[in-house]
Structures are given as C-alpha cells and as structure tokens.
C-alpha cells in the first residue's frame, strides 16, 4: 500500500514536471502574421515573447533589439547574421526583435529581411507601453537601441551598445559550452 502511494507520488511529480517542461516549449500565438514576397513575420506583445528570456536549458540565446531606421542597429546586424550562420547548428539560438512600428512591417521590415538575406529569426514586438516591459528584459536597460541580451541558463549578459564582430563573437563564446 505504502509502495503504491510512493509510486503515485512519483507518477504525479513526473506528470507535473512533464507539463511544466512542455509549457515552456509552447510557442505563443502571434498578434498578427505579416506576409509578403514569401517571407512571414510574426508580431507579438511582450507577454508573447517573455518566455524567451526564461529558457532553462543548455542553449545559448542571443536576443537583439533593433529597428530598420536605427543606423547603429543596421550596421551591426551583418555581424549577428554571420555569427548565427557560424553557430546555429550547435546549441545556439538567435532572435532579432524588431521595434519598427507595425505599419512598417510590410513596407520596410520584410523588404529589409529579404534585402539583407537575414536567416536568423526575426519577430516584431508591438507593445507600446514599454515602461511595463523594459525592466523585465533587463533592469539596466534605459530603452535605447541597439540592445542585446546573451544568456545560457543563469548566466546572463546585457549590452546597450553596438557590437563589432569580434566583440560579439567573444561574448557569445564566453557563454557557449
């Protein structure tokens, strides 16, 4: 009887853990999906992408906040793209979060993705009440872009600046296994 009780508890805990793990993997539903020239671009509010910042696994994540009109962002993006190509087959994931205004999604963002041949995942963040989420991304973020967060599990680095390729690769390497 006692044995059965233990079995039951173990089963229950396993079940709960499985549920938790699978819940983390759920990709939230986008607010909108823009589509043009064969390229799809999903837009989210902050709660739709928040799970990204709480991934607890062996993968190194690079999340970059940018916009097509932000000159230093556009200048550093080729470094991100290049390093994504270099590391993407390992435990590595890059997400480029565009802060372009939603009305520019089809007229500027998608053409930009196509022109620059961006292969890293791009999402559009449409959440104007930035005061409610900037500090959730990182408490040191003033709100200026470009901004980048690089993390693996509890190791987390935040940068409110533009990168050179070498600087970015060094930071990525410092977190990779």
């Amino acid at each position: 009887m006692i044995l059965n009780f233990y079995k039951f508890i173990v089963l229950l805990v396993t079940l709960l853990l499985t549920m938790l793990v699978s819940a983390q993997k759920v990709v939230s539903k986008p607010l909108l999906t823009y589509e043009k020239e064969g390229i799809k671009l999903n837009s989210y509010n902050y709660s739709g992408i928040e799970h990204l910042f709480h991934q607890k696994n062996d993968t190194t994540y690079v999340v970059n906040f940018w916009a097509t009109w932000c000159l230093p962002c556009v200048e550093e993006l080729p470094h991100f793209e290049k390093l994504n190509q270099k590391y993407k087959d390992g435990k590595f994931k890059m997400i480029l979060v565009s802060l372009d205004f939603p009305k520019m999604a089809e007229s500027r963002v998608i053409p930009f993705i196509k022109r620059k041949d961006l292969k890293a995942e791009v999402v559009l963040l449409n959440d104007p009440d930035a005061n409610s989420w900037i500090e959730k991304v990182n408490k040191d973020w003033s709100g200026a872009i470009p901004a980048t967060i690089i993390f693996r599990n509890e190791k987390r680095k935040f940068f409110e600046k533009a990168f050179t390729e070498t600087e970015l690769e060094n930071e990525i390497k410092s977190l990779l296994n």
Partner: peptide, 10 residues
Amino acid sequence: TTKAIGCSIK
C-alpha cells in the same frame, strides 16, 4: 521615473 524605447544618442 519611467522608461521608453528610444534612439541611442549618436
């Protein structure tokens, strides 16, 4: 104090 997205100072 509040925070907002903005363009970095050049």
